[in-house]
Design a protein around this nucleic acid. Structure first.
Length: 460
RNA sequence: UCCCCGGUAGCUCAAUCGGCAGAGCGGGUGACUGUUAAUCACUAGGUUCGCGGUUCAAGUCCGUGUCGGGGAGCCA
């Protein structure tokens, strides 16, 4: 007999013989029989197994408690008691693996996030992390869904890179040389000895390569791991995270903002439609305001305003901020939160930033002071997407690189795309984990990625 | 990296002015014929994060290290 997943068992229309396999969440004993709540990860809900203390079943129940892995075959029947429609009346139980109750760290009670992080190898067996992982999978599918519907192609940008200064953060160095020997080598000897014949690192962004492919395929996106060696110790930064980076030819900043807003709306809609049970868990136990927050995101268009207008709003607010508001400075976290949580009470897109505070590849506006950049801010998390129209004019791009002190030679291929058939184009990056934080209400990035990599942490 | 807060039983936490180390949950044993984080009774369980110091006496005060959390910066 083939095993049936609990998700399907609970959706059954009729009873009958059934084989299920999973892990015991709780066991309750009465005189003469036991209740076992079994979960197999296929959905949030458990199925209740009723096991009579018969001569056949009683020995199998010996030592079975929270965490034990079992196969149960029996009869799916309508449950006579409140609380569940179906239950399984066990005919035989096979134990795959017991879990010593003295030593098994997961108990049938609420655990703190901090504790569960220390046992991340067992976290997938909890309601909250099981739900998170199912939503994560569903959201990844929805990303591909969104872009496919719009004629985008999924492209793979390299993870190993030789571009030293993409301007997006500190890079992890990659080398196949023994560290001590390499350190003793003079730089030119070392470069020659390196696997790639030059310094290499892990990508901090697939954007530049995505641009190259957009300028041929039209509309592309990357969706892959990204690495930043920043010593950031915050609930929204990780050293390894997944980023979605669309890049669109023949598109300007307005198109870019429409795309970002469309993506976020699509993903929130998809979560509400396809992950209802898991989202309800987050709404009950993680963030009481989650579902209203998500509905509110869908209810109205996002607010859009220029950086200059944002500064004016902040100044007019009469609020005293810890960091004073200034025309040429970037928005601080407190400013971002004021804008979307208090002033607009919805997601906000800020665009046209002063050129001094943004990257070299962003398109210079006609005012010569600002660039066509945009940040999409959401309540609680802050920056979810950051993007821009790219500078497609060779002379302006070269001048901007010079202003940033960047040598042209390593970027010859990037500049070539502006030399041959250059077109206006735009794109952005969306932090996938930050999206998951938005959709689940989970407050720490370490809890929306299975095995988080942060400064000093490489366990599991 | 900077600022603030914390580390006490397996987990979550209490312990008054520096004066005998405590609870709930979880575990174990037993009871109960339909439980829903079952209930009831009994029971075991401690290097109070490490090191050093002050004191008759330190979970409590001081120094230092370490780990965790929150905030900031960097950004997605």
């Amino acid at each position: 007999m083939q095993r049936t997943r609990i998700r399907e068992i609970l959706a059954s229309e009729a009873g009958g013989p059934v084989l299920l396999k999973g892990w015991v969440r709780t066991r309750r004993d009465s005189k003469g029989f036991s209740f076992l709540e079994i979960n197999d990860g296929s959905c949030l809900a458990n199925v209740q197994v009723v096991a009579d203390h018969t001569p056949e079943l009683l020995p199998a129940l010996e030592g079975v408690g929270t965490g034990a892995a079992l196969a149960v075959s029996g009869e799916l029947v309508e449950s006579p008691a409140q609380g569940q429609r179906w239950e399984v009346r066990a005919a035989s139980i096979e134990v795959y693996g017991l879990a010593d109750q003295e030593a098994f760290p997961l108990q049938k009670k609420r655990h703190s996030d901090e504790f569960l992080r220390t046992i991340a190898h067992l976290r997938p067996r909890t309601n909250k992390y099981g739900a998170m992982l199912r939503v994560r999978s569903e959201m990844a599918l929805a990303v591909h869904d969104f872009f496919r519907q719009r004629g985008f192609f999924h492209v793979h940008a390299p993870i190993l890179t030789g571009s030293d200064c993409e301007g997006a953060g500190e890079m992890f160095r990659v080398s196949n040389l023994e560290a001590e020997k390499a350190a003793a080598m003079p730089p030119e000897v070392r470069a020659a000895e390196e696997f790639f014949g030059r310094p290499a690192g892990l990508t901090v962004s697939g954007q530049l390569e995505a641009e190259l492919m957009a300028l041929g395929l039209g509309s592309v996106y990357t969706f892959g791991p990204t690495f930043r060696a920043e010593n950031s110790n915050t609930p929204k930064h990780a050293a390894e995270f997944w980023m979605v980076e669309p890049e669109v030819a023949f598109a300007d900043l307005a198109d870019d903002m429409d795309l970002a807003e469309g993506l976020v709306r699509h993903l929130v809609r998809h979560a509400l439609d396809h992950c209802a049970a898991d989202l309800a868990l987050f709404g009950n136990f993680v963030d009481k305001t989650l579902l209203p927050t998500l509905e509110n995101i869908l209810a109205r268009p996002f607010a859009r305003l220029t950086h200059a207008e944002a500064i004016a709003v902040l100044k007019a607010s009469g609020r005293s901020f810890e960091f004073p508001v200034h025309e040429t400075s970037d928005l601080q976290t407190e400013h971002e939160r004021f804008l979307c949580e208090e002033h607009f009470k919805r997601p906000v897109i800020v665009y046209d930033y002063p050129k001094e505070i943004k990257a070299f590849y962003m398109r210079l506006n006609d005012d010569n002071r600002t660039v066509a950049a945009m940040d999409l801010l959401v309540p609680r998390i802050g920056e979810l997407c950051g993007g821009s129209q790219r500078e497609e004019r060779l002379d302006v791009l070269a001048r901007r690189m010079a202003e940033y002190g960047l040598p042209e030679e390593p970027y010859w291929w990037y500049l070539d795309t502006r030399r041959f058939g250059s077109v206006p184009h735009a794109g952005f990056g969306m932090g996938f984990e930050r999206l998951l934080m938005l959709v689940t209400g989970i407050a720490n990035i370490r809890d929306v990625i299975p095995y988080p990599r942060t400064p000093g942490h490489l366990e599991f």
